[in-house]
Design a protein around this nucleic acid. Structure first.
Length: 336
DNA sequence: CGGGTTTCAGCCAGCTTCCG
DNA sequence: CGGAAGCTGGCTGAAACCCG
């Protein structure tokens, strides 16, 4: 550890959870490789981290009631299985050490004791090396517990964590991943979802729908091709405006029954790839406005028409307004 | 023809209901 | 009350289908 450190950036350890949020080290989100964990496992692990947070940097044994861990399941039987999976899980963590990239390997969970009483306590330790990772964190994610518990797809939680972490990074709002990295980060088991189409359909899209509906960020994933093959994706995100955040909060109050219908009806489909090739996406509010003003129209089709129309003209000073103006005339000329 | 998308049926986890 | 059985919906790979 270098002694002559410059002014330190915010460190994960300095961020304390409050009633509504819990904090998870940013580095843990970028799992390069992980043995498959279920959604319940991840939730339990986050609970354990939060519970230990006040003394996370000390070599002590933490204690939590098993009742707090079992979530909605009406017995403790699965807690033990989750704990075993967590202990067996060895993660490779991509870190920066003295400016150079490095890979660190560590178990998620140290030794522990599970009392056999039904309402018993669970004692556990955070591995030393993991504590060090937490201490060295320069990026942190603030996880809203309510959102975390509402997410139902196992990939949605991971995606949400990624965005929470990256959302704090003001100086960028997109990042490129190779498909292989993305599978690793999302925790897709080895050998599963090997084709892009299946990966998109089964992992990415369900996760996007949920995260967009329930978090305070809007997220999109665009495929990037090398030749004809999709080899990378561009992950973009931006903060929702106030009304979007309010909608997400309101949705969290509802039962999750029927959420699928509501969120799907409420979320714009992803911008198709062929449009991407013809110009940069407009602001999300613009699409939202267009959708509200002209319900029933295929927004991306109209955008295509607009791009074709505008191709030979001087670029508009305000493309968003120009598009909305074009949309109005288009809707008048082509009533549904 | 290569590659992406849609559809299908099997499988499994989680939840609810039933029964002792 | 606790466990077993049954149900439901999501996840999955494969195969059919579609497109440039």
């Amino acid at each position: 550890m270098a002694k002559d450190v410059k002014p330190k950036p915010v460190r994960t350890v300095e961020a304390r959870p409050n009633a509504d949020t819990l904090v998870k080290p940013g580095e843990l989100v970028d799992l390069v490789e992980v043995t498959p964990l279920t959604l319940a496992d991840r939730r339990i692990y986050n609970q354990l981290l939060e519970n230990a947070w006040d003394a996370i940097d000390k070599p002590v044994t933490h204690v939590i009631s098993k009742g707090d861990l079992r979530g909605s399941h009406n017995s403790n039987d699965r807690v033990g299985e989750s704990i075993e999976r967590l202990m067996a899980c060895i993660v490779k963590v991509r870190i920066t050490r003295d400016g150079a990239p490095a890979i660190e390997r560590v178990q998620l969970l140290g030794g522990n004791i599970e009392s056999s009483r039904r309402d018993g306590l669970f004692e556990y330790e955070i591995p030393t090396r993991l504590r060090k990772i937490i201490k060295d964190s320069t990026v942190f994610a603030r996880l809203q517990r309510e959102v975390m518990f509402a997410l139902s797809s196992k990939y949605a939680l991971t995606l949400y964590e990624m965005i929470q972490k990256r959302g704090k990074l003001r100086w960028r709002s997109s990042e490129r991943f190779s498909l292989e990295d993305l599978r690793g980060i999302l925790g897709v088991p080895k050998g599963k979802l090997t084709s892009w189409s299946n990966l998109k359909l089964r992992a990415i899209e369900p996760a996007l729908v949920e995260v967009n509906a329930l978090s305070d960020y809007v997220v999109s994933v665009e495929p990037i091709k090398t030749g004809r093959r999709v080899t990378h994706v561009e992950l973009r995100w931006w903060a929702k405006d106030a009304s979007g955040t309010a909608t997400a909060e309101r949705e969290l109050q509802f039962s999750k029954v029927g959420r699928k219908q509501r969120t799907q009806g409420d979320t714009l489909p992803a911008r198709p790839g062929w449009l991407e090739a013809r110009g940069q996406a407009l602001r999300s509010e613009t699409y939202e406005t267009a959708r509200l003003r002209h319900p029933g129209f295929d927004i991306y089709h109209v955008e295509g028409e607009w791009r074709a129309w505008a191709k030979d003209r001087a670029p508009a000073t305000d493309p968003d307004k120009a598009f909305l103006a074009f949309f109005r005339t288009f809707a008048e000329r082509n009533p549904l």
